[in-house]
Amino acid sequence: MERTVETSSPMALEVPLISARYARQFIRFMERKGVRRHAILGDTDISSDMLDDPDASLSMGQVRQLLGKAEWLMGDERAAFQFGQQLDLPAHGLLGFAVLGQENPRRLISMIVQYLRVGLPLMDMDLSSTGSTFRIQLIDNWGLGDLRPCLTKIYMGSIHRISSQVCKHFCFEFDFDSSLEPEQWRSIATDCEFRFNAPANQVTMPLSGRPIRNDDTGLEFILANARSREREPSEQADETVMQVREMIMSQPGRPCAMDNLARRLDMSPRTLRQHLSTAGTSFRTLRNEIRQNFATLYLTDTAIPLDSIAEKLGFSDQAGFTKAYRSWTGQTPGDVRRQARDRK
């Protein structure tokens, strides 16, 4: 049975919660299906300017408006699952690359759940395993009501997409009905079973045993080493640093302002600065460290052009990115990329 909490107060529903990046991707998905943008955004508090703002975030109230308006425009009840399938790791923001270098399949599944909780906190998840089989149960903590099936299918589609590299079969169970035949659902995910009117919304998936990549230059290794060198701060300050890290990792290329992070943490900017100072760091230090880690991952593990990396990390041009990266590491991006190629 789904656990829910009372979140209907105006204050809870208006807190900035998720990146507007997801709304942009959803609007593009709907436009490809022939639904015009103004038809979805009409009578909502979401404007085109907000969608085009790289630093914008949506509240739960706005998410409800968007999904409520779009659901009846979708036409095909599989559309929400298909949209979720487009949310691969990079689509969840640069933080998605943090798990690409993870060579342990069990750890990978755990990290997927962890990052989805941070980047898309609209439903909670309960992860459990028996032998080599994992189960992820979705939990409605917002009392989504009629919108729960739509959001559940989005989550399930994304879990399918980003877990398919290590899992060979998926069994999706939904606690609501479907008017479609099982074959119609399997046409969009041939390696899956779909069961409706089940006791809970959950997916079970056995590991395929296929190895991921084993590369110590991956972001997870870099971040683990960085954390091991951090000072021993107070418990509260340490928790704040971890939360700020996760928030910055969800949008390292955007000018995520201190005021915005403080508001999401329910504290004043001054208090946030004090916590970070107690932990021996600062907002700028954390953001530059994370951008450096993402940049190194791009340079060593991908062939993405330098100007594209600069854009993804929030720099106005390649020259600015090169100057910043040299100040962080003592090397130019080109040098790091050449060294990586020589090692291969």
Rank of each mutant, 00 (worst) to 15 (best):
Q331T: 02
H169M: 08
Q65C: 08
H160M: 11
L95H: 09
F196R: 10
R263N: 12
R231V: 05
I46L: 07
Y155E: 02
A98L: 13
R254N: 11
Q62V: 01
T281P: 03
H38R: 14
P90K: 06
P121S: 04
D52Q: 12
P149I: 10
S47F: 10
R338T: 04
M156Y: 03
A237K: 04
S250L: 15
P149F: 10
D215R: 15
T133N: 01
D45N: 15
I309Q: 07
G101H: 09
E235Q: 11
E232N: 13
D177R: 12
I112D: 14
I18P: 01
V35F: 05
S282G: 06
R148N: 02
S164M: 05
Q202W: 09
D238G: 15
C150G: 09
R341T: 08
P233A: 14
S59T: 12
V336K: 10
R24L: 12
R264F: 05
D301N: 13
H92M: 09
R117G: 07
R37W: 11
D55Q: 07
A56V: 00
D238M: 06
V99W: 12
N104R: 10
R245P: 00
L17F: 03
R213V: 15
L261D: 09
P90T: 08
R148L: 12
R24Q: 13
Y155R: 06
E183R: 10
V118E: 13
Q318E: 15
A237R: 06
E289T: 13
A340T: 08
I27N: 03
A189E: 10
E230Y: 00
M125D: 02
C256T: 14
I188T: 13
N225R: 14
M60Y: 09
E311T: 02
P233Q: 06
D124A: 10
A295R: 02
T44I: 10
Q292L: 06
A310E: 05
A39W: 01
R210N: 03
S208C: 03
M249S: 14
R186L: 05
P305G: 03
S178Y: 01
L207D: 13
D238T: 13
D76Q: 07
M242I: 14
R161I: 02
W72D: 15
P252Q: 08
L17T: 05
T240C: 12
S129Q: 10
A70Q: 05
P10F: 07
E173S: 15
F315Y: 14
E239G: 04
I40N: 02
D191E: 12
Q82D: 04
I40W: 01
I46G: 06
L73E: 15
F176S: 04
D55H: 04
S158Y: 01
L116Q: 13
F134K: 08
S187D: 15
P10M: 11
F97R: 15
L306T: 10
R37S: 12
S308Q: 14
R161L: 05
L306R: 04
S128V: 08
E14R: 14
Q62H: 03
F172T: 03
L89G: 01
L17N: 00
D45S: 15
G84T: 00
K33Y: 02
